[in-house]
Computed example of a mutant assay.
Amino acid sequence: MKILLAVDGSTYTKKMLAYLTTHDEVFSGAKEVTLLTVQSPLPSRARAAVGKEIADGYYADEAEKITAPVVKFLQRHGMNPKVIHKVGSAGEMIAKAAEAGKFDLVMMGSHGHSALGNLVMGSVATRVLAHCQVPVLLVR
């Protein structure tokens, strides 16, 4: 099974990882795991002021802060994940990566906002569900 794990470093990511590693009956067989983290783009003026090289370094550093502990955790559980980081709108980038990579499943933690919270703040999970053609497992 080819699984895309959308990670953001939150406690919801930790819950999703715990679910993945404790439910072998659901995820039996060979697991090919890829981590994806998406960084919000810097404002265009800030990006122009610091330059492409510094902005790209910032994105890479932020992605590493999020993915390094997850990689360590998964390696302790016998998985050797690939790591991808993107810049853009998280919901759309996760959906695009899932389809482009021909994944069997997208897993992500969900903050579980109320309907009003989703209306006001939006929801990455809602966007992924709306745009993704790959099955999505939300862990809350």
Rank of each mutant, 00 (worst) to 15 (best):
3 I>R: 09
5 L>C: 06
5 L>A: 09
7 V>D: 04
7 V>R: 03
7 V>T: 07
11 T>Q: 11
14 K>N: 11
16 M>R: 01
16 M>D: 01
17 L>P: 00
18 A>Q: 12
19 Y>K: 04
19 Y>L: 02
20 L>H: 02
20 L>T: 00
20 L>G: 04
21 T>Q: 04
25 E>A: 08
25 E>H: 13
25 E>M: 05
25 E>V: 06
26 V>F: 14
27 F>M: 06
29 G>R: 08
30 A>V: 11
30 A>Y: 04
31 K>N: 12
34 T>M: 06
36 L>G: 06
37 T>G: 04
37 T>H: 05
37 T>F: 03
38 V>Q: 04
38 V>S: 06
39 Q>D: 09
42 L>K: 01
43 P>N: 13
45 R>K: 09
49 A>E: 04
50 V>Q: 12
51 G>T: 08
52 K>V: 08
52 K>A: 14
52 K>G: 00
53 E>F: 02
53 E>R: 11
57 G>T: 09
57 G>P: 01
60 A>N: 07
60 A>S: 14
61 D>F: 12
62 E>V: 01
62 E>Y: 00
65 K>F: 00
65 K>I: 10
65 K>N: 08
67 T>Y: 03
68 A>S: 14
68 A>L: 10
70 V>F: 05
71 V>I: 11
74 L>P: 04
74 L>F: 06
77 H>Q: 12
78 G>I: 11
78 G>E: 13
78 G>Y: 14
79 M>I: 05
80 N>A: 15
80 N>P: 00
81 P>C: 07
82 K>N: 12
84 I>W: 09
84 I>H: 14
84 I>R: 15
85 H>D: 12
86 K>M: 15
89 S>F: 13
91 G>H: 07
91 G>S: 11
92 E>D: 13
92 E>H: 12
92 E>R: 13
94 I>W: 07
96 K>E: 15
98 A>F: 01
101 G>C: 08
102 K>E: 15
102 K>C: 09
103 F>R: 10
104 D>C: 11
104 D>P: 06
104 D>A: 11
108 M>N: 04
108 M>Y: 09
110 S>N: 15
113 H>M: 15
113 H>V: 15
115 A>D: 07
115 A>W: 04
120 V>T: 11
120 V>D: 08
120 V>G: 05
121 M>R: 12
121 M>S: 10
122 G>I: 10
123 S>N: 11
123 S>K: 10
128 V>L: 07
128 V>W: 02
130 A>T: 12
131 H>S: 13
133 Q>P: 00
135 P>Y: 03
136 V>N: 06
138 L>V: 01
140 R>M: 08
